[in-house]
Design a protein around this nucleic acid. Structure first.
Length: 828
RNA sequence: GCCCGGGUGGCGGAAUUGGUAGACGCAUUGGACUUAAAAUCCAAUGGGCCGUAAGGUCCGUGCCGGUUCGAGUCCGGCCCCGGGCACCA
């Protein structure tokens, strides 16, 4: 063994040994319980960053620990290889997206290997591989057959200069993120997945995931789905206009229906234009509609945008109150939600209130708060809370919560409307007018219509010789060899779909593919899938709380319904780790505060990087990178190294020697107790992913060992046990140095497969406990006691304590509180 | 505006169910080793007051109040920071 710790040498050695012995390659073993631990796979951007390192380190600790517990651990990794950056690189630098992507993967793979993660590299997946997306295309065709994938037109962000669709995230301050030109709204045909068919299932699932997922992620998903219960009510028009007889509205406050003083329609609603036909207000209204429709979504919903609208000249009738209600077209009404028409109750809805004030519309109070009377004339804002219904015909006097139900019942019996549930969640638009993605396997035949590509023609491969200009829309659309095809049904000329799929589709099922990455008959091998699935522990950043995790849950349910897997929820337990920040800000190029993992590995080794990341902060919280902090982690591992080196000679002959606890000195016994308490502590911390305190406990044990004296034989045996314990406890956190030290200590087996160390219950349990003696709740003394000292004995001990005596002498004892193993409190 | 997190030393953070607040690490200071430095090792380190000293004593977990023998932890009311959603009727 060398005197100096050389992490690079040690790490290279053990990475080689692990890989030679193929220790991480697993197959189904029905004699063992399986454990599937998964970290969110990376986008191959070129470099591993600290966020990845943190994510994968957490996963690796869990994987290694579970393995020592005897689980058959599946711990795979792969690449989320499709996506925009590759295509941008092609446009800007003329590198083919495939070349760019595969070079990045090679580089990042080498980085991950240097970090020593326990991946089964045999299962590596690259989503841009036709052997991968082939199955995704096949699933698409099945979804198409069932109407779960469909085409429709929708309004999208459009950059007229780049001639392409922009995602909402790609619109910055109303302009294109790349060329800055003003973004417009445009109707465009595209493909959608019918996630709205699964809203209730996705909501139910949130209940079932309660024990394994962070509450806030579930809350975010529930909010995103946005279920709201209310009523749909028809408001008949005063006179039929252009064939329109009535307006259907959606409200969550049917109890306020008597307070309606106007109705508003979304400008883009087809009825808007029809309803103003022939009215004196027609010209003004049409101008308004045009102006609003020209605005981008971003402009329209930007903060501080004023509510505005125009009167249509038309009226409808409130079916409850029979009042004549003016109809407006207003910018704050959304076409995509509900019916695109709303009933407006300015007294009890803040938005309606603001609109009414702007256009001097009548305000009618129909809910009175308890113990108060509100008056329309002095209202400064709407009263949106519950109360008692007033001015509401036969419903007056009812509490509003009951009124809600009664109004719906009334509407249903008279055919005025019905109970209705609306969701915020919309269908998932998966079309991208982009090259670097999985082609949507659809052809358009003049005779046979829209057809799914048959299985025997899959995959629809991405053509490789393509020009990237960044202009003129989808690159695929310009490749005639690709676009022009024959219809498999009639043999006639047909055109291929040129949209590719959103990359979130690939990440919606990669965890399934890992179970059988070589399977050639479908997405996954049912037999192997049944053994490994679901994922027992998923780990990733909170930034995916909604999109990725919701899509993956949805897609899994779809595949289940298509008979491709037998799974309701893909991830049983979810751990969301915090970000890695530096100087209080997220690491970024523009701030110049990036710390490169490679530099750190070169300087300290990956074990040190791992220890620092695990120790510096609890996993769920943000981690502040500290250059001094990592020095501390390095110092710790150096101390471990030196300790083993220095005492090696002394303890050499005590391998496997059990110290006789009755023969050792008090200090040696204290150390032995500390050893076993530490094993207990670290084990419990590993179980609950509290790695920061787990590492701290090992540090404490190291401090205790450094301080201890050991001259007699039994003491040396204790010392050896303590050192071996440190090394073994360290293994999941810093595996390379642990393996090396274990070998130095004369062991031939490797820690990677050695069962986890257990604590001696007797040693831990028999320890004297410190009992705190309080007077009036203030600590005045402390004494050692046997853990099974009776309460009466504890009391006696307290009263005979000199210091306690000085505080209670001459005073009246009012009460004595005794907590076994903890404290005695005397109240005077 | 709504919904989540979170406020503990100079800093990152500990404190299973209410029971010694500040584990562990960083930084700082002093000391040892050294010709010297680095590295390493040892010690001190929340604040105030009393004491030459050993020590004693009071205050202290964002703020105000409450429950309790006892509150960082529970309850009520506020303040600040971070994140998510946001004209969703």
């Amino acid at each position: 063994m060398k005197e100096a710790y050389n992490p690079q040498e040690v790490e290279r050695k053990w990475q080689y040994i692990w890989s030679e012995k193929r220790v991480y390659e697993v197959t189904e073993d029905h004699n063992k319980e399986k454990y599937y631990v998964l970290e969110m796979f990376p986008y191959p951007s070129g470099r591993i960053h600290m966020g990845h390192v943190r994510n994968y380190t957490i996963g690796d600790v869990i994987a290694r620990y579970k393995r020592t517990l005897g689980f058959n651990v599946l711990h795979p990794i792969g690449w989320d290889a499709f996506g925009l950056p590759a295509e941008n690189a092609a446009i800007e630098r003329g590198v083919h997206p495939a070349k760019w992507t595969y070079e990045n993967i090679a580089q990042m793979k080498a980085q991950l290997k240097r970090l020593g993660f326990s991946y089964d590299w045999d299962r590596e997946i690259t989503t841009s591989d036709p052997n991968y997306y082939k199955w995704e295309q096949m699933a698409f065709t099945r979804m198409f057959d069932r109407g779960l994938a469909y085409k429709r037109s929708s309004v999208v962000n459009w950059c007229p200069s780049c001639e392409t669709v922009l995602a909402n995230e790609q619109v910055e301050a109303g302009g294109c993120w790349r060329c800055k030109s003003s973004v417009t709204q445009r109707e465009l045909e595209g493909w959608f997945f019918k996630i709205t068919d699964y809203t209730e299932q996705l909501l139910d699932g949130c209940e079932r995931l309660k024990d394994g997922w962070p509450e806030r992620v579930l809350t975010m998903q529930r909010n995103w789905i946005g279920k709201s219960t209310g009523a749909e009510i028809g408001f008949p028009l005063e006179e039929t206009i252009e064939g329109v007889r009535s307006l259907r509205i959606f409200t969550t406050r049917p109890d306020t229906v008597f307070g309606v003083t106007f109705v508003c329609i979304a400008p883009e609603h087809p009825t808007s234009e029809r309803i103003v036909k022939g009215k004196p207000q027609e010209k003004e209204a049409l101008q308004f509609i045009q102006r609003i429709n020209r605005q981008s979504n971003v402009e329209r919903v930007a903060e501080g945008v004023k509510k505005e609208g125009v009167f249509t000249g038309a009226y409808c009738i409130n079916p409850f109150s029979a009042e004549r209600i003016p109809i407006y077209i207003a910018n704050f009404v959304l076409m995509e939600y509900g019916t695109g028409v709303i009933m407006c109750v300015p007294a009890h809805d803040q938005r309606d209130f603001e609109f009414a004030k702007e256009y001097c519309l009548h305000i009618k109070v129909v809910i009175q708060p308890e113990g108060d009377v509100i008056n329309p004339d002095d209202m400064k804002c709407a009263y949106e809370d519950v109360g008692t219904m007033v001015n509401s015909g036969e419903f007056s006097g009812l509490p509003s919560e009951i009124g809600k139900k009664k109004v719906i019942e009334y509407a249903e019996t008279r055919g005025l409307g019905k109970r209705q549930i609306n969701y915020r969640l919309r269908d998932w638009g998966i079309s991208r007018q982009r090259y670097w993605g999985a082609p949507i396997p659809i052809i358009y035949c003049g005779k046979c219509g829209t057809l799914a590509v048959p299985d025997n023609e899959l995959p629809v491969e991405l053509p490789m010789d393509v020009e990237f200009t960044g202009k003129g829309g989808s690159p695929l659309a310009k490749i005639e060899r690709f676009v022009n095809t024959k219809c498999h049904k009639c043999g006639g000329d047909a055109r291929r779909e040129t949209d590719t799929m959103d990359t979130f589709v690939e990440s919606s099922w990669y965890f399934l593919r890992y179970t059988s990455p070589d399977f050639e008959k479908g997405m996954l091998d049912g037999v192997r899938g049944k053994y490994w699935l679901p994922v027992d522990q998923y780990i990733g950043g909170i930034e995916h709380a909604i999109l990725h995790l919701l899509y993956a849950r949805f897609y899994t349910k779809v595949l289940r319904d298509l008979g491709m897997c037998d799974l309701d929820e893909p991830f049983i337990n979810l751990l969301t780790q915090g970000m890695v920040i530096k100087d209080g800000a997220k690491m970024s190029k523009s701030l110049g505060n990036i710390v490169d993992p490679d530099d750190m590995i070169a300087k300290y080794g990956s074990d040190t990087v791992r220890i620092f990341m695990l120790f510096a902060s609890p996993v769920e919280r943000d981690l502040d990178w500290s250059d001094e902090g990592i020095e501390g982690a390095y110092r710790f591992l150096n101390r471990v190294w030196r300790l083993v080196y220095e005492v090696m000679k002394k303890i050499e002959d005590f391998k496997g020697v059990k110290p006789n606890i009755t023969l050792i000195s008090d200090t040696a016994r204290d150390l032995l107790i500390k050893v076993h308490k530490t094993i207990k502590k670290v084990t419990e911390d590993l179980e609950r992913f509290r790695f920061n305190t787990g590492v701290a406990a090992i540090m404490e044990l190291l401090n205790a060992v450094s301080r201890s004296q050991s001259n007699g034989n039994d003491e040396k045996a204790v010392l050896r046990e303590a050192i071996e314990t440190i090394v073994r406890l360290l293994y999941p956190f810093a595996p390379h140095i642990a393996e090396e030290q274990w070998e130095s200590l004369g062991h031939e087996e490797t820690l990677v497969d050695k069962p986890w160390i257990e604590w001696d219950r007797e040693i831990v349990g028999s320890t004297a406990v410190i009992v705190v003696l309080q007077v009036n709740g203030k600590v005045r003394s402390q004494v050692f006691m046997d853990p099974d000292t009776t309460e009466e004995e504890m009391k006696q001990a307290a009263f005979s304590d000199e210091r306690v005596k000085s505080y209670i002498s001459g005073k009246e004892i009012k009460k004595v509180v005794v907590v076994p193993k903890k404290l005695v409190n005397i109240v005077v």
